[in-house]
Design a protein around this nucleic acid. Sequence first.
RNA 1: GCUAGGGUGGUGGAGUGGUCUAACACACGAGACUGUAAAUCUCGCGCCGCAAGGCUUCGGGGGUUCAAAUCCCUCCCCUAGCA
Length: 365
Amino acid sequence: MANPKTFKTKHAGNLPLPVFFPDATRAVLKTLDSVDIENTKTPGVLVNTYHLIKDLGKIILKKHAGVAKFMSWQGGTISDSGGFQVMSIAKQPGSKGKITDEAVTFQVPGQPKVKLTPEDSIAFQMLLDTDMVVVLDDFTPPDASYEYAKETVERTLLWARRSKDEFERICKEKKIAQEDKPYILGVVQGGKYQDLRAYCAQELVKIGFDGAGFGGWPINTSGSFDYESAQTIKDNSPKDYLLYGLGIGKPHEIVALVNMGYHIFDCVLPTRDARHKRLYVYNAKSMDEINVQSPDFYSYFVPDKQKHYSSPQAVSTACDCHLCTNYTASYLAHLFRIGDHTAARLATIHNLRFYSILMEKLRVR
RNA sequence: GCUAGGGUGGUGGAGUGGUCUAACACACGAGACUGUAAAUCUCGCGCCGCAAGGCUUCGGGGGUUCAAAUCCCUCCCCUAGCA
């Protein structure tokens, strides 16, 4: 039982770990197409069960042999279960969403009501034909009481067992060979309560998964990153487990978790920040000088500032992305100021390349 | 030169006697964003001050009034039309 070194994919072979998969929630990475994503040396993307079940539907998917082919994507894919939407939609104050042991119901005004059971989520993810499927989980809110956190853990475990059963049932029904099965990930809830985290992780191991996800909100109520829970999950997982920081995170947080032994990450930050005019830049003059283990290895660069209006420099000389090799910071500032969508595209490309460089640097340790 | 309409903050533009540092918007500045209901949201934006608060503004000058961006006189400037 050795530490995993690669992530097996259907379309891109074995990807060296660790990996960061940005979020193409609705089978598109906002502002980019699949060729753009590939050019940022991004190895894979995450898609979302709740959003695709609502927007895409099973019938369309069946004609396209999986979401990767549908979006003409050559890299790896992971599907999220809809577990995050249990928190971001169903548990929002005023939401008409409902969570029971049987299922979660999402209701966003103006959008179709979606009811999702753990079995539905797995079945749809198998239809998406991704390289890793994730069990539906009951998200522990960051401010949850011990009693409520325990309730979410128990429901998460209940759903995990049902998800695993459904997974095996479908694999058998479709006669999927052992080596062709996608990875299936259990998700650890429990919030800040370490005994609940440990219990949840241990029970998931008994059910039998390929890896464990650090679930819930990774930032505690005082605003700092919850490394303690990450460590507890690591300590209660088998050596050969894939460890996945769900929705994580900022570059220095990823570095810390990779150092801890985590392998897989996804996050909206690089793409959303890019659209919000925040670019990540290495504090280095060239790619070779980047040292991601140093405390302040990166900074934010906000192009839409008067001081950059006439800058003839590239955003970063330590970056080989489409933006940095072809355009000046001044031109990017101009595109943002006039509100042209090309600005968001170029910034997104840049931030994705920042993250792919980060993971490259973390691989050659 | 005559006639008419105008001159308000970094910009566009409200306001036509008191509750005006002056709506709203843009621009500018600061911040947030973590398994995407987010190409979004929050805050600031005359000057001094941490704040309470104080001070100064509506082309220039003068006047009327308890009170003027708002009314009157005059000068300067802009736009359109006519000479």
